[in-house]
Design a protein around this nucleic acid. Structure first.
Lengths: 351, 351
DNA sequence: TTTAGCACTCGAGGAACATGAGTGCTAAAC
DNA sequence: GTTTAGCACTCATGTTCCTCGAGTGCTAAA
């Protein structure tokens, strides 16, 4: 399976020109670009070999060759140069991330948007919490006579609140009592445990009080559910239309639809808990049908200690892998760093 | 300018078949569909008149006619039947809205999604607050030693919070003091007034305390800004691709891009403070360039007493106006009703 | 092992042509 | 005066056929 150096150079030339032009590459073009001092005939022989070995494909008898999924895979694994980002680009990224730091969601959204702009492909983002999230504390604040604010803080430091109206009104001692019950019985419990506890409590608590408790606990459960759920978000979907493989709407539509329906639970393209923090899936390597003809380059990053996020670029198999991976890995590192973790200095790639 | 009854019937037949088929309508088709007992030749004469008066257009000499913007306008204003929604559809809408009632944003998003599904067009939503929003109260909750939660409630009953870390920690009395200052000096102020007050305060307050105050007030100002800003959101963008006028990517792209960039300040398609609560903009009537070839049907609804929202459907000028307006007006009414306002019973349209 | 030469394949692009839907006009019919 | 039938004309669409050329595989010579 080990390819000769010359074969590698040829393959690389083909992949790169195909990435650039989106058109099958013929022997003549390779002869010029690969920097080898051999004739087109020799190249043709080598190309025939590569085709036989499954690294190249012919759309039809007399067109040039295009890389197969295996060809891209080899390119990505062994042949590709790491690209450097320009100063301008790093600047752009940093700006986007530092800007206020605001809320987690918004930073991530913004990150997706910028990445999509500098990579020319759509970008999706996803954040997944660790398995077990619990509520760290409850706070209740009376407002006016007939409503209070319930503030729930989870152990991954997310704080959510809700305005709860109660027809009858509530006295201060009642409120404190409620707060005490919540903080003593529901702190440290997972969603499921909360549900159990609530059930048990129902029988041996005064009905009026129980309903109030249930109201707040249900809200807390929603918050936990919301945290655990993977939030899928996509940016720059229209970038897809820039690339010739999606000029035909029949191709573009399923993928766009897949990226668009943000709310739905997203069968995530691949495990995000593999050790590596950069992952490339080429065409058929994707499980999901909508992605069969596309490649996904994704990187994961840490959000504090308890959560992990994924940010990924979606594009045609003929994607500019070198460019994308460079930008993506810088992005992921920046995100991790900004969420508070120190990174080891990046290893220099040995060339 | 008053058209004969026959001309109206012909125009209506043309608009409706063109809406259904997306293809120029010829005299023969009209003769069959309009329910008039005249020959195609007569129809042709009438169609020639209508073309001259600007209600119809010819793509080229020997194709059928298509409605012009003026034609659609006439159709919408006078000719169109109001459609009834099926029981199933109202059911669907009600489900989508009632489901939990949760947060305002989420309900609206969900509404957009459902509307987009039942109308087959993309839908945008927008919410705009009234002019002056102020903070109604501040609450501060200590968590751990080095952080507290700031809870801000605005006078339109939106509650937001933020976790604020402070290196040194804060004693309980300090916290209460802070809370007192905030509630006495910053409640009832608009964003701009807050800024002023903060500036004045800077000179005559202890530096340490001032920074804390500034931290919270800045957050409150963000909340207010966020409220005032019109939030534009779109759903079902890929529905666009279902319609033949957007099969060509060059047509689809600008519009998709316009709908996609949610974050940006959106030059809103039209005033939402016109008295009417249903508004139809046909093709060139749109100010925005990206919408020049599309129609927008939008309805506004009230969110409580202080805010107003707009929900709109975007599609080709050949849009099924009858269907869309029916669904949209039901939607807008439902939204208004669900946000607490009693509606007068709908007037029966006199036919 | 490499190269030159050559016949072969096959898609892209273009010209020529037929088709047919739809039109406008005119003259006859009502 | 209005409606209708008839007819010539226009023009987008689809089809066929052809050429062109890039690229291939194979063979024989270097």
């Amino acid at each position: 399976m080990a390819l000769s150096d010359r074969k590698k150079r040829i393959l690389r030339a083909i992949v790169e020109t195909y990435i650039a032009t989106a058109e099958p590459v013929g022997s003549k073009a390779v002869a010029e670009l690969a920097g080898l001092d051999v004739s087109t005939a020799t190249i043709r022989n080598e190309m025939a070999d590569l085709t036989e070995q499954g690294f190249l494909e012919q759309p039809h008898t007399s067109a040039g060759r295009i890389p197969s999924a295996a060809g891209y895979r080899l390119y990505v694994n062994e042949l590709m140069d790491r690209q450097q980002l320009t100063l301008q680009e790093t600047q752009r990224i940093n700006d986007a991330l530092n800007l206020k730091m605001e809320e987690l969601d918004r930073v991530i959204d913004r990150a997706g948007k910028v990445l999509s702009q500098i990579s020319d492909y759509p970008v999706f983002t996803m954040a997944a919490a660790k398995e077990r999230i619990t509520v760290k504390r409850f706070d209740l604040l009376m407002v006016e006579d007939n409503a209070f604010i319930a503030v729930v803080m989870t152990d991954n430091s997310v704080v959510k609140n809700k305005l709860i109206h109660i027809p009858g009104g509530l006295s201060d001692p009642q409120l404190q009592m409620l707060s005490a019950v919540l903080n003593s019985s529901f702190v440290g419990l997972s969603r499921e445990e909360m549900e159990e506890t609530l059930d048990k409590m129902e029988t041996r608590t005064a009905p009026g009080a129980f309903e109030l408790i249930a109201l707040v606990v249900e809200f807390a459960m929603e918050v936990l559910a919301d945290q655990r759920q993977q939030k899928f978000h996509a940016a720059g979907i229209t970038n897809l239309l820039e690339h010739p493989e999606y000029r035909s709407l029949d191709k573009a539509k399923p993928l766009m639809a897949y990226l668009s329906d943000e709310g739905e639970e997203h069968r995530l393209p691949a495990t995000l808990d593999t050790g590596k923090n950069m992952n490339i899936l080429i065409g058929p390597e994707n499980v999901n049908d909508a992605l069969k003809d596309t490649s996904v380059v994704m990187a994961s990053y840490d959000i504090g200690d308890n959560m992990r996020g994924v940010i990924g670029v979606v594009g045609p198999t003929r994607m500019d892998y070198a460019k994308v991976t460079a930008r993506l890995s810088y992005f992921a590192d920046s995100l991790t760093r900004m969420f508070g973790k120190e990174l080891p200095p990046p290893e220099e790639p040995e060339e």
